[in-house]
Simulated scan of single mutants.
Amino acid sequence: MKITVSFLLLLLVCSVSTGQPEMETQACPQDIHAVLREMTASLAQLKVEVTSLQKENQAYAVKLKELEAQGTVVEKQETEIDNIKQRLEVKQVAFSASLLADGEGTTGPFSTHTTLVFKNVFTNIGSAYDPNTGMFTAPVRGAYHFEWYIGVHGSNTAAVLVKNTNHIFAAYEHQTNGFGSSSQGATLLLEAGDVVFVRLWINSRTFDNQNHHTTFSGHLLFTV
């Protein structure tokens, strides 16, 4: 910018001085050539500086990509660590509950198959069992083991373990007099989100009291 202004001023001076004697006007062409040489040298220097800046920018761009790649790796590692923590947490799944929260009584008979809601929860590690619905929901794909016990006074009883909508095993007891009980167990391969519960068979009844005769328990054996 300074060079350009100087060059313009010089041209202006030379134009004004055209009416001056010949000796005074001879200096103008020489001054113009000097300014042109200076401008050429400055432009060459600017070109070198621009080239240097371009190289620096390219180097910064490469470094930025490297840092972004490193950031992506760190994010992936953090995500993997979080996944490992979650898997370790869901491996701790176990529950056990009895039918009645307090007192004693007989549940049933019902005119349809009815889900038993085991309200007296002793253990619910991982919170996979819901005492409001009687449903166990698998938090992760794996092998789970379940056991259920039913007690009855002087009657027939049958309780079925259900996976989603499929009947798995049934515990059955026929008692004409006094108290009797039956139990069953099963190991199931569950996908995350599968539900497991115990269903009282139609026209059956079950008994429970403070001794907890009717129970439902389960735990995760291992993930797969």
Rank of each mutant, 00 (worst) to 15 (best):
L8W: 04
Q184G: 03
F169N: 09
Q77T: 07
V35T: 06
A171C: 02
T114G: 03
M23T: 11
Q77E: 13
E78A: 15
T4F: 12
A143P: 03
F146H: 02
T215L: 06
V62D: 13
T165G: 08
T133G: 04
H174C: 10
Y60M: 13
F169D: 02
G126A: 09
T187A: 06
N166R: 13
K91Y: 03
R199S: 10
I150T: 14
A186K: 00
Q58R: 11
L9C: 04
N177W: 14
P21V: 13
P131D: 04
E89C: 09
V198Y: 00
A138V: 03
E38T: 01
S182N: 07
I150E: 04
D130C: 07
T123V: 15
D82P: 00
S155A: 15
K63A: 15
Y149P: 00
Q45I: 08
T4N: 14
N132Y: 07
V224A: 04
W201D: 13
G180W: 01
S52V: 02
I168F: 03
Q77W: 05
G71H: 08
T176N: 09
R141V: 10
S98Q: 01
E38I: 04
P21L: 12
R205F: 03
T79I: 01
N156Q: 10
E191H: 10
T115R: 14
S127K: 10
V195H: 00
T206H: 01
L190K: 02
S204E: 09
F207R: 05
T18L: 15
L53F: 09
I125N: 07
N132A: 09
S98W: 01
S42H: 10
E49H: 08
A186H: 02
G193A: 14
R87N: 14
T176M: 03
V90L: 14
L220F: 04
H213K: 11
F207L: 10
F222D: 00
A94R: 05
Q30Y: 01
L8M: 14
L9V: 12
L188N: 12
L12W: 06
K85R: 11
T187H: 01
G180F: 00
G19I: 13
T40I: 12
F122Y: 11
C28S: 07
H145P: 00
L100P: 05
N203P: 07
H167R: 15
F136C: 02
E22P: 08
S127F: 10
K47T: 11
T157M: 11
A128Y: 06
A101M: 01
A171N: 00
L116F: 06
L221R: 05
T40R: 13
L64M: 11
G151P: 03
K65R: 14
I81V: 15
N83D: 01
V5G: 06
E22I: 12
V90I: 11
E68Y: 00
A59C: 09
H33Q: 15
S98H: 08
P29T: 02
Q92R: 14
P139R: 06
E78H: 05
E38Y: 06
I168T: 09
A143L: 14
L190R: 01
Q58F: 05
Y149M: 02
L189I: 08
